[in-house]
Simulated scan of single mutants.
Amino acid sequence: MSTTPTVSIVMPAYNAEKTLNASIDSALAQTMTDWQLLLVVDSKSRDSTRSLAEEAAAKEPRIRLIVDLPQGGCVYNRNEAIARATGEFLAFLDSDDLWMPDKLEKQVRHMRETGCNISYTGYRQMDWEGQPTGQIIQPPARLTHALLLHDNLLGCLTAMLRRSKHGDIRFVEHLHEDYILWLKLLRHEDALGLPEPLAVYRMAAHSRSGNKKRAATARWRILRNYEKLSLPRAAYYFASYAWRASRKRF
């Protein structure tokens, strides 16, 4: 691997002993080998996540283990990893999700060929036990800020950012923190995607966004407090979000 890796992969891990190895293995299986994995073990994790992470880092020099941070939480851990990243591109893989082996290779090629600074791919869904649900998310080939206001079609596990074009990449402490960041970035430029499903998202009832009422409240606050939309415009986009969420559910 070169001194400066092509891709810096951000992976926060909290009580992830059941899924961590599979997520790491999906990074190790990438056809593009020029990457670094910034693996942040949450300081409040109480299972064997840390020992599993230490074992993986001991075997693989591309894994940079980050432990004993003074604060916990997914947002804080992601931001710490971003601050230490050195790659040309940033990618995000949570400790319970998976990538297809050619995900990085195809996405980096796509970004270099198109010159885009923000990209994403389609993805599949699986249940907590790893069984496919049959649901495939295939976003459009171009995402604009206006489209994103209707729905968050940019899955965090598929996102890739060109670091040199985004000097201030930080998540804010909020439910749907990734959605807030994508909205901020897409105010200035469109994102170009690969509709092909190159990642697998693990559905978990106990996830931070699993509570539908809480998720809906968070979406409304994003539209009003972060996007600062007028009441009628916020209501319009919220209704669009609610309709799409209902279609996904039923």
Results as ranks from 00 to 15, higher is better:
195 P>W: 11
229 L>P: 02
17 E>W: 02
176 H>N: 15
215 A>H: 07
43 S>W: 14
38 L>G: 07
115 G>D: 10
104 L>C: 05
224 R>D: 01
88 E>Q: 15
208 R>F: 06
25 D>S: 08
83 A>Q: 12
56 A>R: 03
131 Q>W: 06
194 L>D: 02
177 E>D: 09
241 Y>E: 14
28 L>P: 03
31 T>A: 01
232 P>I: 13
18 K>I: 04
35 W>S: 07
164 S>Q: 15
64 R>A: 12
76 Y>T: 07
127 D>N: 14
2 S>K: 13
209 S>Q: 14
69 L>V: 12
152 N>D: 15
192 L>E: 06
41 V>P: 01
136 I>D: 00
140 P>Y: 05
35 W>T: 05
248 K>Q: 15
86 T>I: 01
61 P>L: 05
88 E>H: 13
36 Q>V: 15
133 T>D: 00
174 H>G: 03
72 G>T: 02
62 R>N: 08
212 K>R: 12
140 P>V: 08
4 T>A: 05
64 R>C: 10
86 T>N: 08
202 R>G: 03
46 R>N: 14
152 N>H: 07
148 L>Y: 12
234 A>M: 10
221 R>Y: 04
146 A>H: 13
155 G>L: 03
87 G>F: 06
93 L>N: 11
112 R>A: 05
236 Y>C: 01
211 N>Y: 02
208 R>N: 09
163 R>Q: 08
226 Y>K: 14
59 K>D: 03
180 I>R: 14
105 E>I: 13
223 L>V: 12
190 D>R: 11
49 T>S: 12
248 K>G: 15
79 N>P: 05
242 A>V: 11
98 L>E: 01
84 R>P: 01
23 S>K: 01
250 F>R: 10
38 L>R: 11
84 R>G: 00
37 L>I: 00
174 H>V: 14
232 P>E: 10
250 F>L: 10
184 K>H: 13
159 A>M: 08
